[in-house]
Simulated assay, not measured.
Amino acid sequence: MNETRELIKRLRAENGCPWDKKQTPVSMVRYLIEEAYELQEAIHGGDSQEMADELGDTWFQMVFLIHLLEEAHGLSFSEVAHANRLKMIRRHPHVFGDETADTVDEVKTHWAKIKEEEKAEKHASLLDTVTSGTPPLMRARDVSRVTAEAGFDWDDMDGVMEKVNEEWGEFNEALASGDKKAASLEFGDLLFTLVNVARFAGIDADSALSSSVAKFEKRYRLMEKLLAEKGELPDRSRSADVDAMWDRAKEHF
């Protein structure tokens, strides 16, 4: 930490880097988010060297942001870290207190109860506890989770799957009507319901989608390579080999 902090101070010094000197918390947070996504991609890719590289980049962006927040708002990293430590201890009474929790579900119950108590002290609505700046798929997951923990949920997977079929039908009706705005709204409802399916199945929708996209990219790149060796492009209208090369790529990934 100290070495990284000294590096950042040097970059922002009077004779440092013009780009680094211009950065603010607002401008820098987007780079932290980008690096976090690149780290996620590296983890899903499974390459340890890439993971280490992206983790280093994410770490640097985090420390840079801490430095900027200290400069701009007088936040003390030690105070923030101490407050977070106390919060984590408070939310793990089964480790640091007298409560017991032998299963993951019991841990979640404790966590939800404590967050409810904190919410009652700070928030007017349960949804105020959900971070508003996260990407839509992650926010859908979090909104779904906190409302379900409060008791607003389907009874079982059959119920949520029935809702998927209902939303799929409404989406198709909107498509058939030619109303793009209505179709967009229904498509959003369908996606949100599928996020709930993932929650019931114990799957993180964002991670699952990232893994699927990464798998598709690997297959497509290999298909491109196989077609290039034949002097062809991945265009079904121009090559009869596209589907065959895609099937070959699927055998590898």
Rank of each mutant, 00 (worst) to 15 (best):
H92P: 02
A52G: 08
K122L: 12
D247R: 08
D235G: 10
L39R: 00
I43C: 08
G231P: 01
S144N: 08
A83R: 10
K22A: 15
G46V: 02
T134Y: 02
N15T: 14
E162N: 12
V63H: 00
E79N: 10
E41V: 10
L69N: 09
R5H: 08
K215D: 14
N15Q: 15
E149C: 00
G74V: 03
E70Q: 10
T131W: 07
D247I: 07
E99N: 10
L137Q: 02
D156W: 04
P18N: 02
V95L: 11
K122F: 09
N165G: 15
G231L: 06
L209K: 08
G188C: 06
K215R: 11
A72G: 05
N196L: 03
R90L: 10
C17A: 11
H73E: 13
S212N: 12
A244Q: 11
A72R: 11
K22I: 13
V195G: 00
F60R: 04
D204K: 00
F216Y: 14
K122P: 05
M88L: 15
A36C: 13
E170M: 01
S78I: 13
M88H: 15
E79D: 15
K218W: 05
D204Q: 02
N15L: 14
Y220H: 13
L175M: 12
R12A: 09
A81M: 09
A72S: 12
E50G: 09
A72C: 11
S144P: 05
F96S: 05
D235L: 13
Y220I: 09
Y37K: 15
D98F: 09
I43W: 03
A150T: 03
L39E: 03
G151K: 00
R238N: 09
E34G: 07
V80S: 06
A244C: 08
W19S: 09
D57H: 06
F192K: 10
K87W: 07
R199S: 00
D204G: 00
M245A: 07
D102G: 10
H123M: 08
A148V: 03
D156G: 06
G151Y: 02
E38P: 02
G188W: 01
A120M: 11
D153W: 00
G188P: 04
K250M: 07
V95S: 09
F192V: 09
S212R: 13
L127K: 02
M245F: 03
E14A: 14
A140C: 04
P25F: 01
K108R: 14
E162W: 05
R248Y: 06
R5A: 11
T131V: 13
W246N: 09
T193A: 04
A101I: 02
A112N: 01
G46Y: 04
I203N: 06
D235A: 11
M245R: 05
D98E: 14
D142I: 02
L75G: 07
